[in-house]
Design a protein around this nucleic acid. Structure first.
Length: 919
DNA sequence: GCAAGGTC
């Protein structure tokens, strides 16, 4: 009889496989490892009688490590770790398992590998093969391919043994080596560089703190920091929208403006005024159509984690723990799968049949199986297939086990209901859309009636509500019950939730379905991020500083691209398109170059850390920048002078010489090539003296119209510098990346915000409008006045290049415009650009020498109950995105034109369509 | 003392 040694990836699988194959007729004995038993029985493979021994490993049997002489942290330069010899060996705690395998393999003819059917499983298979072949070179080696611990799959696998896949295993070898070399080198580098130089208060004993770097944990941290920066740099912007309601006998309809909202206040007011003056609404369209809401795709691991987090607030770590339990007990299929489509071979009906008896969803399962009910639908495909496991689905019926926790019940129910939903018809609704026209403005309202709930009957986690709307007919006219001009403000996005973070990782290919939750936990363990009660993540000072440091170097080490490229290469190896050696050579060469660069630019990491942490007396490093000449007294600390500095990457700034106690800084435009302090003193800026600086800009980096040479003042009066900074940015990466402005000087009391109570010592970012510190961009005195100016004079903005004359009444300028009234269409006139002034003159009168006259300003009201004023009406306004197409006549008959974008000043569009807003 | 990936 052939003796077969069967090895599974874990003890529970060995037991299940043995129980199924032996039909529970087996003997159990201990191996050398107390957890990994050996099961014995007889079984026939393809007609051959075999004596089966089934045992297990516990995941990877081997580890990769550097050879001993490189293992001590101070034994070598971390850069040497890119070439240091490594070895793959069985660690101490796995030696018992190794001995068991050796002893049993000596006595066997065949080795059958029952490892999980993914790349890692294949690699473990090769580890087991290496150990077994070491003692028995004549072994016949075969691989069992199965995807669920159920009789059908296990017997089928045993009768259809295949060869192990070397390419799959090679891909993992390459991944292991790259991860080890990158992780160890960067972790040693940044820990030894930073830990002793700063007082890192997040850990109780920062001397033992490890500042780890890993190709998965850092991009994950990057997602959290990037979102945090986005929130911090968000500047609320006001917008306006017109809302209309109509109450009839049948109920209330709420119509929303089909323009959505506008950021241009003046346009909104004018359009609103038109509606109020001619408020009769005409129904222009009544459309009824059928809408379908489709069931979800079959369940992958990430979807399971995301949905459990969303529906039950379970952490991804807990979800995977419970799912593993359910899998090991045979209730659900393998829980680590990327696959979200069922193979045509899967017997879906049988799975549904098992659930007919369930007290809660049994009747739904019965309806599914009744052809007359028409509820069945073959599941759609999500488009992913890892070729190893099916989507997560129930494999054994249960109406709830007594030993299950609440999370077990919830998760099993989710898996079953999700499966039943997948094989169901979509929900069907009848949707009615009504569009109306008021004074040329279009509004719409919609209602929905659910005709058939179908899958929603079983998938209680999703809903699709009814919303009633009264009946309207095309051409019908009515007067709105309310017509309001409402304002709102844009809000920043929320902090990343656990489900969001998983989505980011999934999209970027960070980690595997089995490890994503581990990376999230690692960030918490390393004090890089914190998680609040709503499962939302914020970076700690430490996490933010590390990302900021690498970002200031200009590297994307904290971004997901690196890992994505590595994953792509791994895939190529596993498909046989690239060799392991080839991928290792190119990847390690690139990473070593990157590491050496990071070492050269380590000052960036030190600077970023210095923003958040105090220097430690354990450090004797001096990383201060080279000081330049005195420009002015510091207005913030009022103790030291502001001096001109040049960064190591060539950017200029004027910073307080009291740094780091005082962090007052003025960043200069990015295109500055040279800057020299002159003896000239600005006669308007205080506190003085403020010495003027002779600048030379890089010709190709400044817009046309700006001079390469400029004698400028950094005190706040210099319009040229302000415009250049607005257009080109500064040498600081702070604003280019959207880092937050802050209102608290960092040498003052710690900033405290509800979203991050531990945050302190935040970077003093300069105001992006006047490039001064001490206030936020949102509070900039220059901007507040500018904004007011724009808002109050929006209708009279001067188009670029338009001719203007001085106002004879108030001295500011008058802008030439074109009238569009019935009597004066095309006639030119000048009007004052100041709201406080009513100066108005026809151009031809001016040329004729006639006396100018004042005209009253339009009087615009927000009140819907004031439709009494009559006068000129707005003409057809079809495209608010292009100011050039829009001409209005105000209530008093005065032509209004010449609007331009409030954000960038371009007359070709309004602020709501401004390209700069997108960035 | 380092990675990520298995598993307990």
């Amino acid at each position: 009889m052939i003796k077969v040694l069967n090895v599974a990836e874990k003890p529970s699988v060995a037991k299940s496989v043995a129980t199924i194959l032996s039909r529970n007729q087996l003997r159990v004995r201990d191996g050398r490892s107390r957890y990994n038993k050996i099961f014995e029985f007889n079984y026939s493979i393809n007609g051959q009688q075999c004596h089966m021994l089934v045992t297990s490993v516990t995941g990877h049997l081997m580890e990769v490590e550097f050879e001993d002489r490189f293992r001590k942290w101070h034994s070598c330069d971390p850069a040497d770790l890119y070439t240091a010899p490594i070895r793959k060996y069985v660690p101490e705690d796995k030696l018992d398992i190794k001995r068991t395998l050796e002893e049993e393999a000596r006595r066997c003819h065949w080795l059958v590998l029952w490892l999980d059917c993914d790349r890692e499983g294949e690699n473990i298979a090769f580890e087991v093969m290496a150990v077994c072949k070491g003692v028995n070179r004549n072994l016949t080696i075969r691989r069992a391919r199965f995807s669920a611990l159920i009789e059908r799959d296990i017997h089928e696998a045993a009768q259809n043994l295949i060869a192990p896949n070397q390419w799959f295993s090679d891909a993992v070898d390459a991944r292991q080596e790259i991860d080890l070399r990158i992780g160890a080198s960067f972790t040693r580098f940044q820990t030894m560089l930073l830990r002793d130089r700063f007082v890192i208060d997040s850990a109780q004993d920062d001397r033992n703190l490890v500042l780890s770097y890993g190709p998965c944990q850092f991009p994950t941290l990057g997602f959290v920091v990037e979102r945090y920066w986005e929130i911090q740099s968000h500047e609320p912007e006001e917008f306006w929208t017109i809302n209309c309601t109509h109450r009839s006998d049948e109920g209330l309809a709420s119509f929303s403006w089909m323009r959505g909202h506008l950021f241009d206040y003046t346009s909104s007011v004018i359009l609103y005024e038109m509606c109020v003056e001619e408020p009769t609404a005409t129904v222009t369209k009544v459309q009824q159509q059928e809408k379908l809401k489709y069931p979800p795709y079959p369940l992958s691991t990430i979807e399971l984690e995301k949905r459990a987090s969303r529906y039950f607030r379970m952490s991804s770590e807990q979800t995977m723990k419970v799912a593993e339990d359910l899998y090991q007990a045979g209730f659900i299929s393998y829980p680590r799968t990327e696959t979200d489509s069922f193979s045509s071979r899967t017997d879906l009906h049988t799975i549904v049949q098992e659930h007919q008896e369930h007290p809660v969803w049994g009747s739904y399962a019965q309806r599914l199986l009744d052809p007359g009910a028409g509820l069945w639908r073959n599941p759609s495909s999500g488009g992913h297939d890892d070729k190893a496991h099916p989507p997560i689905h129930p494999t054994k019926f249960s109406s709830g086990e007594s030993r299950w926790s609440q999370d077990h019940h919830r998760l099993y129910e989710l898996v079953v209901r999700h499966f039943l939903a997948c094989v169901s018809q979509p929900a069907v609704g009848a949707e009615t859309v009504v569009e109306i026209d008021i004074a040329g403005e279009r509004f719409s309202a919609s209602g929905r009636v659910i005709l058939a709930k179908n899958y929603l009957d079983v998938y209680r986690f999703e809903s699709w509500g009814d919303s009633m709307i009264p009946t309207y007919v095309q051409g019908q006219q009515f007067i709105p019950t309310t017509l309001t001009l409402d304002s709102g403000v844009t809000r920043p996005p929320p902090l990343l939730s656990e489900a969001d973070l998983l989505s980011c990782m999934d999209k970027a290919g960070i980690g595997t379905d089995a490890t994503m939750h581990d990376h999230i936990k690692k960030l918490l363990d390393r004090f890089y991020v914190t998680k609040d009660a709503n499962t939302r993540f914020s970076p700690t000072n430490l996490g933010e500083a590390l990302v900021m440091g690498y970002d200031d170097m200009g590297y994307e080490l904290w971004k997901p691209n690196l890992r994505s490229l590595m994953e792509y290469d791994m895939k190529e190896v596993s498909m046989g398109n690239k060799s392991k050696a080839e991928v290792l050579a190119t990847c390690l060469q690139q990473m070593k170059a990157c590491f050496l660069d990071a070492k050269v630019n380590k000052v960036k990491l030190l600077e970023a850390m210095a923003i958040f942490f105090n220097r430690s007396d354990r450090s004797n490093g001096d990383d201060s920048s080279v000081l330049g000449e005195n420009v002015r007294p510091c207005g913030l600390c009022q103790e030291a002078n502001m001096v001109l500095r040049k960064n190591r990457d060539g950017n200029f700034m004027v910073g307080c010489s009291g740094f780091p106690q005082c962090r007052n800084a003025v960043w200069l435009p990015g295109p500055v090539l040279e800057a020299t302090i002159t003896n000239n003193i600005c006669n308007s800026c205080t506190p003085g003296p403020v010495y003027l600086i002779q600048f030379k800009f890089r010709q190709l980096e400044i817009p046309p119209g700006f001079n390469v040479n400029h004698l400028g003042c950094i005190g706040g009066c210099d319009e040229t510098l302000r415009q250049l900074i607005e257009i080109c940015g500064t040498g600081s990466r702070v604003q280019a990346r959207g880092r937050p402005p802050t209102t608290t000087p960092s040498n003052g009391p710690p900033t405290s915000t509800p979203s991050n109570p531990q945050r302190s010592n935040s970077r003093q970012a300069p105001c992006i409008y006047c490039y001064q510190t001490g206030h936020a961009s949102t509070d900039c005195p220059s901007r507040i006045s500018a904004t007011r100016h724009v808002q109050s004079h929006g209708m009279n903005q001067q188009n670029a290049g338009e001719s203007s004359i001085p106002c004879s009444t108030c001295g500011t300028s008058c802008v030439l415009r074109t009238a569009n009234t019935a009597n004066n269409r095309g006639r030119k006139f000048y009007s004052c650009s100041s709201q406080a002034c009513n100066f108005f003159v026809w151009e031809d009168n001016l040329n004729n020498g006639s006396a100018p006259r004042s005209a009253p300003r339009p009087n615009i009201s927000n009140s819907a109950s004031n439709p009494s004023r009559r006068g000129g009406r707005g003409r057809g306004v079809q495209n608010a995105g292009r100011a050039a197409d829009v001409t209005f006549v105000s209530a008093t008959g005065e032509p209004i034109s010449g609007r331009r974008c409030f954000v960038c000043g371009d007359p070709s569009h309004f602020a709501n369509a401004c390209p700069s807003r997108g960035s």
